[in-house]
C-alpha cells in the first residue's frame, strides 16, 4: 500500500491534517534543559479563547508594540477602528465582518492599536466578508469593523497593542 515517491521510498496514499479548535486541541510545550520557560511565553490560542469572555482581546504574542491577540468570537462585537491596517484570521468556526468607511476617524494618524466606537459608525458601508476556518481578512486603516459569530469561534488578530489589549502572561503561559 502507498504511493511510490521520487525518493525511491513509498509514502502513504492519504494524510490527515491536524487543525485545532475550541472543542479539540492538544497542547505541546517547552522541555527545559537549561533555560527559563517564561522566555518562551508558550500558550495555546484555543485554550486562551476557551477561557476568555466573548470579544476579549488577549495578547498571545508581543514584539515591541506589535501583538497577536486571541479572541473568542461569540454573538456580535462592538464596532472598532484603528489608524493602521489590521488583519484577522479565523482559526475555528465562522465569522462575518462588516466594514464601514468612517467619515472621520477619532484616532490620530499615528495612533497604534484599535479602539471601540460608541454606538453605530458614521460613514459609507464598504461591504461584508464571511470568514470560515483558515480565512484571513484585511481590516483596512480608517474603517470601522464589527464581527458576528452565531456560535463560538476563534480569531487571531495581527495588530498593535491598544487600550483594550489584555496581558495575562502568567495565566496563559507555561511558567515551569
Amino acid at each position: 500500500m502507498g504511493t511510490p515517491s521520487k525518493s525511491g521510498g513509498v509514502e502513504k496514499s492519504a494524510y490527515t491534517t491536524v487543525l485545532g479548535s475550541l472543542d479539540s486541541y492538544d497542547k505541546g510545550g517547552v522541555e527545559l534543559i537549561n533555560d527559563d520557560a517564561r522566555h518562551y511565553a508558550f500558550s495555546n490560542i484555543f485554550e486562551v479563547a476557551s477561557k476568555s469572555a466573548p470579544w476579549e482581546k488577549v495578547a498571545v504574542a508581543k514584539n515591541f508594540e506589535y501583538v497577536l491577540e486571541a479572541v473568542r468570537a461569540e454573538g456580535t462585537s462592538q464596532w472598532r477602528t484603528a489608524a493602521h491596517d489590521e488583519f484577522v484570521v479565523c482559526l475555528d468556526g465562522a465569522v462575518t465582518v462588516e466594514l464601514v468607511k468612517l467619515d472621520a476617524s477619532p484616532l490620530a494618524p499615528d495612533a497604534g492599536g484599535s479602539i471601540a466606537l460608541d454606538g453605530e459608525p458614521t460613514g459609507r458601508p464598504m461591504g461584508r466578508i464571511h470568514l470560515a476556518r483558515g480565512h484571513q481578512a484585511l481590516l483596512p486603516s480608517g474603517a470601522a469593523y464589527r464581527f458576528s459569530a452565531p456560535s463560538p469561534a476563534v480569531l487571531m488578530m495581527q495588530t498593535i497593542a491598544g487600550p483594550d489589549t489584555q496581558f495575562r502572561w502568567a495565566e496563559i503561559c507555561q511558567t515551569v
Binding site: N34, N44, V60
Partner: peptide, 16 residues
C-alpha cells in the same frame, strides 16, 4: 542546548 519545544496546532511560542 537550552530546550526542546514541541508545538501543536494553536500553540504559540517565542524564540528568544
Amino acid at each position: 542546548v537550552r530546550s526542546r519545544v514541541t508545538m501543536k496546532a494553536g500553540d504559540v511560542c517565542a524564540m528568544p
